[in-house]
């Protein structure tokens, strides 16, 4: 589904990603861990198409297409979803208007008919139940005045609404209380299908108890320095990143 080959990228001339290789197949869950500032969010930004990150080398194929030449909205319509580490507030724009615009754009791309107002509300209700999001939240403006945890839950709700092929969740677990964490993880598990995939960025093994990854990668200084099964997350939790840093410096 997604193939990243020797990807290098910089921000304001400063190299951040220094040669990333990654292959994600349909049905898989990949976790990316790594110290602060190692480039995890930057990788997510490149995949989603933020223009302040400049790609200097490498290629990214998504469902056989060169992802890097597509506009962010085209990538989204093809099925890339980014759960933001810091979701943005859009005052005065109701969740209903926002989601209806987004869902209909994506349906247009997939040659599906536009949803009428009542069909849309029904669809929204179903998804709300699925991810157990509070009804009040979807009656408000996009993220406006939401608490940190509410914003994260709202990202999962939007993911459920848009039914992406590849969902990149950037620290969706941070700032969540135990119950919310379970809700978010359940949402992800319910939405998991053989034809979609997840790239989960996290600092905590705890999330991976709920969302069990097929593969865990460690990103350090712009490179993936270690890839292993889910037991790697446990090891990191126990030992921290120092041993990885050492191992890496010895290379």
């Amino acid at each position: 589904m997604l193939t990243i080959k020797n990807l290098k990228a910089q921000i304001n001339g400063k190299p951040i990603l220094k040669g990333i290789n990654l292959e994600i197949k349909a049905g898989e869950v990949h976790a990316i861990m790594g110290p602060n500032g190692s480039g995890k969010s930057t990788l997510a930004s490149v995949l989603a198409g933020r223009d302040y990150v400049e790609v200097t080398n490498g290629e990214v194929l998504f469902m056989g297409q060169n992802l890097l030449e597509l506009a962010p909205e085209e990538r989204a319509r093809m099925g890339i979803f980014l759960g933001f580490q810091y979701p943005v507030e859009i005052p005065g724009v109701s969740m209903v208007t926002f989601m209806r615009t987004a869902v209909n754009e994506i349906r247009k791309y997939r040659n599906l008919p536009q949803l009428s107002a009542s069909d849309f509300l029904k669809y929204m209700r179903e998804k709300k139940e699925l991810v157990e999001i509070d009804t009040q939240l979807t009656n408000r403006s996009v993220n406006e005045g939401f608490s940190g945890g509410e914003k994260k839950k709202n990202e999962i709700f939007q993911m459920a609404m848009l039914e992406p092929k590849l969902a990149i969740l950037d620290e969706t677990d941070s700032g969540l209380d135990i119950d919310a964490l379970r809700i978010v993880a359940n949402g992800v598990n319910k939405l998991k299908r053989p034809d979609n995939a997840y790239l989960v960025i996290t600092h905590y093994q705890r999330l991976l108890d709920y969302i069990v990854p097929d593969v865990v990668h460690v990103l350090y200084d712009g490179k993936i320095v270690k890839t292993a099964g889910k037991e790697l997350a446990l090891e990191l939790e126990e030992k921290g990143y120092d041993w990885i840093k050492k191992e890496f410096q010895n290379l």
Binding site: A48, R50, I90, T101
Partner: peptide, 9 residues
């Protein structure tokens, strides 16, 4: 960008 990422031009 947030809107773009949800498929909105």
């Amino acid at each position: 960008f947030y809107c773009n990422q949800r498929g909105i031009s």
